[in-house]
Design a protein around this nucleic acid. Structure first.
Lengths: 282, 282
DNA sequence: CTCCATGCATGAGTCCAGCACATGCTTGTC
DNA sequence: GACAAGCATGTGCTGGACTCATGCATGGAG
């Protein structure tokens, strides 16, 4: 078996199409047909116009990925040992990162270690922690409600951020500079989806204050929540940089919720690129 | 990069000699020189008649192994999915296995799954548990003092075995059929090395009975301990099948120590060969 | 139903990567 | 200093990986 064959199998499994996989690999389709067949066990079922993985293929795939990743990692660790950090660095981010200037970080990384290939992946905080634990990503920058610490991974606190209240311009509270959580609890609310870590932050804030608010409108992004507020439909709690700049007012919340921005990584065999990034980060 | 190159690197790293590594790989020496060089980073230092790993080589090696193992595993899992269990199955054993007929097990495994390559590895119980945890071996059969359960791995109890007292033929106790631990504590003792799991069994037995025995002679194998007894130098506690058949007497110990024979394996992604072996075992 | 597009398999031909061979170079040993 | 061990290097060759041409199956359009 050779890694080339594994690359072909992965390409076919991804595209579910020999022809496109071949293009992706810069060879003709028959090259893949030959090499895949040479593996012996049939990994793909050509059922009527569609290529599907057989059970054997399903069993094969994760180990093929594993093998290719390990080979890449071998090369990266070797060059790192002679001072040239290389390899792929996958960073996970929540959509509402503010504590860190990501483009600047990427630039600095690239300047310090031009051989490192940076990938960014956006997701919810809990997904990112899981991905770090499963070694799918090297690092993650994420926000958690105060007092919650990510489990099963190494972490470092980057910042502590207050959430601000956002209310429609014509709202009675709009003239005020600060509000209490209790006042917000009376209002129709817009928030992240139930179960998301963003939602957990405000839920927790109201709960610890002993307040019960009405079920909020749910939206998946800070942007959408902001638009709901601007439309006059609700008030919201958002990280300050994500408060809408027009069409809404931003208020400080007295003893209001904070979120903690964590840098998270896997302590078990972090890649040389990950170690380099950690050295570069505050 | 191709797996062939990784195989060459491993062979050179093992033999620390290009020529012998080449023979092992069934190619000429220059083939290895070329392929290793093509990896780019110098992995070996040719320091005066000896090939040594550079730091880059040290960093490269474990990932190269990882990659090759994963590739092998991919093939094994694929064939397993179509009903042909294959791959390498490494079984760890303590030197004093008695609860299981290992040759018979290997024969049955080979008959049921001729494509499986069985390897046996002998070691102390605690080493084997660690090896299972580190995924170096698939299964292990080992004995632990009663009440001790292996941690971080899956296990199944195979048997509960009493340890018997072994005394020299001309010893005053030799005429008796049973003895108390208290009587044995008075005698000069032969036992496994301090810190070994075998030693832990008798240590624990005396301790829980509230007895203090003299520091025992230490030997590394049950065989040697038996010889010390036969020579009239000491008494011992051994698994019954390892009591010497000549030159010593075997006595039952009243409420004496037992050891529990465990079958141990790693719950996280056991190989198809390991799963097959587990199905075959009691 | 026919025709055609899509898409994988297969066989023959081509070309280059990996190998063998020959040889050179360094180092350690007697 | 002669010799042996052992890796590097250059050259030519060969097998395997690729391309190309073509066949074959399926599904959709008319």
């Amino acid at each position: 078996m050779e890694l080339q064959q594994l690359r072909y199998v992965l390409a076919v499994a991804e595209t579910r199409n020999f022809t496109r996989a071949a293009q992706q690999c810069f060879v003709v389709q028959s090259a893949l047909s030959h090499q895949v067949r040479k593996l012996g066990t049939p990994l793909f079922a050509r059922s009527s116009r569609r290529v599907e993985l057989t059970p054997a293929g399903e069993a094969f795939l994760p180990w093929a990925r594993n093998s290719l990743d390990a080979a890449e990692r071998a090369a990266a660790e070797a060059t790192a040992a002679v001072g040239v950090v290389s390899g792929t660095l996958t960073i996970g981010l929540i959509p509402t990162v503010t504590a860190l200037d990501i483009p600047a970080l990427v630039r600095r990384l690239h300047e310090a270690h031009p051989e490192v290939n940076v990938r960014l992946r956006v997701g919810a905080s809990d997904e990112l922690v899981a991905a770090v634990r499963e070694d799918e990503i090297d690092l993650a920058v994420l926000g958690l409600a105060q007092g919650i610490i990510p489990e099963g991974v190494e972490h470092r606190v980057l910042a502590e951020e207050a959430l601000v209240a956002v209310v429609p311009e014509e709202h009675p509270l709009a003239r005020r500079g600060t509000v209490d959580l209790a006042e917000l609890a009376e209002e129709p609310f817009a928030d992240f989806a139930t179960g998301s870590p963003g939602r957990a932050q405000s839920d927790r804030a109201f709960r610890t204050a002993g307040l019960v608010r009405r079920d909020p409108y749910e939206a998946s992004t800070a942007q959408l929540i902001g638009e709901l507020v601007c439309a006059g439909l609700a008030v919201a709690l958002l990280p300050a940089p994500f408060a809408p700049t027009h069409g809404a007012r931003t208020l400080t919340v007295r003893s209001g919720p904070h979120r903690t921005v964590h840098l998270v990584w896997n302590a078990f065999q972090p890649s040389s690129a990950a170690r380099a990034a950690l050295r570069l980060l505050p």
